[in-house]
Amino acid sequence: MSHAVLRPNWAARIAVAVLSVVALVLAVALAVTVGEMTIPLGTALKALGNGLFDLGFPTSAIQQGVIFHYRLSRALMAALCGGALAISGAILQALLRNPLAEPYILGVSAGASTGAVCVMILGLGGTTLGLSGGAFVGSVAALALVALLAAGAGGTSDRVILAGVAGSQLFTAATSAIVTTMASAEQARGVMFWLLGNFGGVRWPDLWVATPVALIGFIICMSHAKALDAFAFGTDAARSLGVAVGRVRFVLFATTALLTATMVAIVGSIGFVGLVIPHAARFLVGPGHARLLPACLVIGAVFMILTDILSRVLVPQQILPIGIVTALFGAPAFAAILYGAKRPA
């Protein structure tokens, strides 16, 4: 249907953009009102007005604090994280020509967890590094190792994935070794909770880091949308279409690595989003990356905000780690997509 349209259909584009913004705003609105303390939307809006523009509406200090400092920052972080992971997944699936590729295949999350436990349990880096700093250093170290391994093995898609698996196993083993030998039960529980992803600790300063990273990453990825399309028939085909394969691969691997490492460092490792959302988005808008990447950004953001809400309300008085919720809902959704997209033999 959309294949036949070559010239940009501005009306349709604007409609889709408006719909996307509306969906995002609704999701954020839902996220700031729902929770253990249910706050009416009107009150929430007033609190937002106070927080953003200092309008001076009469709201209770508690509500003001919960809305602005806790729920809004949390919802925006969820949106950025979902969007960034989904885009990274779409890019890796295209570059590696493998539908199972996802951000964590590069060893990012395994490295992050090792970095986090080094700080949390071994006390490396003291107070200056912090948990997020440790996680970031760990994920960059894991990436460097995987990149070295992959380059040494020839740099083909299969080798990158195998190197990623090897790196992930190594860092996961290191994490387990540290946790089982040195952690107290309390610490082990804390690590477990962090590993499965948690938006609870997000505050505004985290957003000042995550927002520019996500935006710049998105722009870099979008500027390579056409080159990514050219990878459909492999690297040689891309090369023959005039794509500087080596440079594009380096830039995009580095960009997805930075996006993922930043998100993992702030909220822990959240599985399934980077794998499932690109497939869902491809199902909706087709394989062209000029549409796929913005679709991943929006769908990933909305999906993550909604799963974060679910993680807060599914079990009363308790917050589920977000990674559990994404997998609980993502896995069946993925199965449905696989089943629905089954090719005629």
Partner: peptide
């Protein structure tokens, strides 16, 4: 390719350069 492309999508790739 494993990507779901139409004939026209493939030919369009030729416009990349």
């Amino acid at each position: 390719t494993d990507v779901h492309l139409s004939v026209c999508d493939v030919v369009r790739l030729g416009r990349t350069p």
